[in-house]
C-alpha cells in the first residue's frame, strides 16, 4: 500500500533569541494510505511540531515531507493553503470553532474556498454533520453545544472537503471519558468506513490503543 505520508530525515530547529532549539532531529516516518497512527511522547518531544509539518502549517528546517504525493516544503504560501484545503483536515484539541458561526456555518468554512454553490455547500456540510451525528444541531452555536459535540462539529469541518489525511492534535485532551470514547469511535469509523488516513497526537494510552500503529517521540527523535 502506498505511503500517504512520507517524512524523510526531517529536522526542525527554532531560534529563540540566541538559542537554537532542535525540536525534531532527523525524523523519518511513513504512513501508508488508510492507516491510523498515534504519535505519543512526553510534552516537548516534538509531536505537535511533526503533526504541523504533516498538515502543511509549518515547514521543516531540513529534510522532506511528502503528503499525498506533494512535497510540502516546495509549495508557496498560497499554494500550500490551497493544498491544505483539499488534502488535509485538522482536528484541534480545543475544537477552535468560530463562536459567531453556527455548527453548519463552521462546517461550511473550508467549502467557501471551493467553487460550489450555496446549496451545494449547505448539502455537503449537512452530510458531514450527519456523519458525526449532529445534523439536528446544525443551527446551534458552539456555546450551545457540549465539549464532545463541539469536537464532533470540528471533525465534521475537518472532513467536509473530503481530504485524504486527517491530522488530530490531542482530539480527546479536553473531553471527559465518555465524550473521548465517542470521538475515538467516530475517528475509527472515519478510518474504517471512509478510508481516511489519520495521524493523531495523544498523551492518552487508551486513545493510542485505538490506532493501528503507535509511534513514540522523545526529545525530537522517533524511538519506536
Amino acid at each position: 500500500m502506498a505511503n500517504v505520508v512520507d517524512v524523510q530525515g526531517v529536522r526542525k530547529v527554532y531560534n529563540r533569541d540566541s538559542l537554537e532549539i532542535v525540536v525534531l532531529d532527523g525524523i523519518t516516518l511513513l504512513v501508508p494510505e488508510g492507516e491510523f497512527v498515534a504519535l505519543m511522547g512526553p510534552s516537548g518531544s516534538g509531536k505537535t511540531t511533526l503533526l504541523n509539518l504533516i498538515a502543511g502549517i509549518d515547514r521543516p528546517t531540513s529534510g522532506r515531507v511528502t503528503v499525498a504525493g506533494t512535497d510540502v516544503a516546495r509549495l508557496s504560501e498560497s499554494a500550500l493553503a490551497r493544498w491544505r484545503s483539499r488534502t488535509v483536515g485538522f482536528i484541534f484539541q480545543f475544537y477552535n470553532l468560530i463562536p459567531v458561526l453556527t455548527a453548519l456555518e463552521n462546517v461550511q468554512l473550508p467549502l467557501l474556498l471551493a467553487p460550489l454553490s450555496r446549496k451545494e455547500r449547505r448539502e455537503r456540510a449537512l452530510t458531514a454533520l450527519r456523519i458525526v451525528g449532529l445534523e439536528d444541531r446544525s443551527a446551534h452555536y458552539p456555546r450551545q453545544l457540549s465539549g464532545g459535540q463541539e469536537q464532533r462539529v470540528a471533525i465534521a469541518r475537518a472532513i467536509v472537503a473530503d481530504p485524504k489525511v486527517l491530522v488530530a492534535d490531542e482530539p480527546t485532551g479536553d473531553l471527559d471519558a465518555r465524550s473521548a470514547e465517542e470521538i475515538l469511535t467516530l475517528m475509527e469509523t472515519l478510518n474504517r468506513d471512509f478510508k481516511k488516513t489519520i495521524v493523531m497526537v495523544t498523551h492518552d494510552p487508551r486513545a493510542a490503543q485505538r490506532a493501528h500503529a503507535q509511534k513514540h517521540l522523545d526529545k525530537g527523535v522517533l524511538t519506536a
Binding site: 498538515a55 502549517i57 504560501e77 498560497s78 493553503a81 490551497r82 493544498w83 491544505r84 484545503s85 483539499r86 485538522f90 484541534f92 477552535n96 468560530i98 468554512l109 473550508p110 467557501l112 474556498l113 469541518r157 472537503a161
Partner: peptide, 12 residues
C-alpha cells in the same frame, strides 16, 4: 480564529 482560517486553507 485567524489560525483556523489559515489552517483550513484560507490564503493569507
Amino acid at each position: 480564529e485567524i489560525a483556523v482560517l489559515k489552517t483550513v486553507g484560507f490564503p493569507s
